[in-house]
């Protein structure tokens, strides 16, 4: 039931109450932004628009990995869940790749953790540079990365993953003024089941299984789960019905 009030000329659209900025503790939020190298929100401090910008900036900050600037584990899980739903609705194939830097512990042990950080940053950049802007690249663990590629035709999966792998392989990482090292990644991948809603955990597990295969078979390799082919072409249908006599069913 709706109650309509008579409209009076003095009526104004409802305004949200202005927040009592004096009572808000915003110092730490602003300090976090500054520490991450971000500008404070523009506009009048305390205004609704300013507060919204501040919240947006904090949301962005909390969905990124501090070292590499990639999406972090939390943002990745949200995106993966959304993608599973999207694939089930649209039927468009989506590819999930998981990548792990080969012998990363050896890099840390031999060159130190600062060098390790340089390697992580360089790999992050290489991953971002080798996929489309619509793809989500995330750092999901220490030296583990994941890439969600929406609307990726199954026939292209191998080529995309290979491109990512080669990009890292051919990228020297500067770890000191005159020191460069080469690194590589092992990549596993699996397509989301196009037919029904599956779960993000299962999808990730399937991609990870392929990553283990890539590691076990020698590293610096791409291994994708074999894609099940369910499409039946017109040629196949023609041959299927060619000599077969269908009787009339009453």
């Amino acid at each position: 039931m709706r109650v309509t009030r008579p409209r009076r000329p003095t009526d104004r659209p409802p305004q949200p109450p202005s927040p009592p900025t004096d009572a808000l503790e915003l110092g730490q939020a602003l300090q976090l932004l500054a520490q991450a190298g971000r500008q404070p929100p523009p506009g009048e401090p305390g205004s609704t628009a300013w507060l919204q910008d501040l919240i947006d900036a904090l949301v962005d900050l909390s969905s990124r990995d501090a070292l590499t600037g990639l999406a972090n584990r939390r943002a990745f899980e949200v995106a993966l869940e959304r993608e599973v739903d999207r694939v089930a609705r649209s039927g468009e194939p989506a590819l999930l790749l998981t990548a792990d830097i080969d012998h990363f512990k050896a890099v840390n042990d031999q060159w130190g953790h600062a060098a390790g950080d340089q390697v992580l940053k360089a790999v992050a950049t290489a991953l971002l540079d080798s996929v489309r802007p619509m793809d989500l690249v995330a750092r999901v663990g220490g030296e583990e990365f994941a890439i969600i590629l929406p609307n990726c035709p199954t026939a292209f999966g191998e080529a995309v993953a290979e491109r990512v792998r080669r990009r890292v392989e051919h990228m020297p990482v500067a770890i000191g003024p005159s020191q460069q090292i080469a690194v590589s990644v092992s990549i596993g991948g699996a397509f989301a089941p196009q037919w029904v809603r599956s779960s993000p955990a299962l999808w990730l597990e399937r991609a990870d299984q392929q990553l283990y295969r890539a590691k076990a078979q020698g590293r610096n390799l791409v291994r994708l789960e074999p894609t099940a082919v369910s499409v039946v072409s017109n040629e196949e249908k023609r041959l299927l019905f060619e000599t077969f006599q269908f009787q009339d069913h009453e």
């Binding site: 074999p226 099940a228 039946v232 196949e236 299927l240 019905f241 077969f244 269908f246 009787q247 069913h249």
Partner: peptide, 22 residues
């Protein structure tokens, strides 16, 4: 069943099992 739709879907199933599950 001996009908075009069933034949097509059975074929698609066989294809998926062969390519996806070996």
């Amino acid at each position: 069943t001996p009908e075009p739709t069933s034949l097509t879907d059975a074929y698609a199933t066989i294809k998926v099992l062969a390519t996806g599950q070996g």
